[in-house]
Amino acid sequence: MASSAENTAAGHGEDGETRRDFLMLATGAFGAFGVGAAVWPLIDQMNPAADTLALSTIEVNLEPIQEGQRVAVKWRGVPVFITKRTPGQIKEARDADNADDLIDPERDADRVKKPEWLIVIGVCTHLGCIPLGSKQGDKKGEYKGWFCPCHGSHYDTSGRIRKGPAPKNLPVPEYTFLSDNLVKIG
């Protein structure tokens, strides 16, 4: 069967072959590009949708927050702790910049844009529980910051891990001050 058909299918000679090969190559390349373009929407549709992205930034009005007060807001599904620190708390945080027990050494000044406003993601870097300390009457731990009840991590007034199993400081999210009293997180 195949021999005669295959031979004839093989082309009419050198020139015919090269021409035909170029056409097939070009068509193949063109087609492959089309397949790629067709596959992209199927992949991109899993990326966050427009309504999810719309909730990916929040603007928080800082006016009602008193000195020494802490507030927790929801952002991208997790809590964000916003603290208006007293000068005493700021000093305490800065004094500890070179302490020996800093598990994840970081300077306080590198963790804030305005010293009185500490903004950190409220998820313990150990296994993901939400540390206590943002509400009135909460335990704050030995370093007067936050205390995670799950496995006993203690965070200080800069949100740094000082004691316990957590490996990293409370993360600082991306944020910008739109004005003195308005911050955009995300």
């Binding site: 929407p41 199927l42 991109d44 549709q45 990326n47 949708a49 427009a50 309504d51 999810t52």
Partner: peptide
């Protein structure tokens, strides 16, 4: 409708 409006290329799919 969310697929049509918010999901990337949702309207096309």
């Amino acid at each position: 409708e969310r697929i049509m409006r918010d999901v990337n290329y949702g309207w096309l799919i």
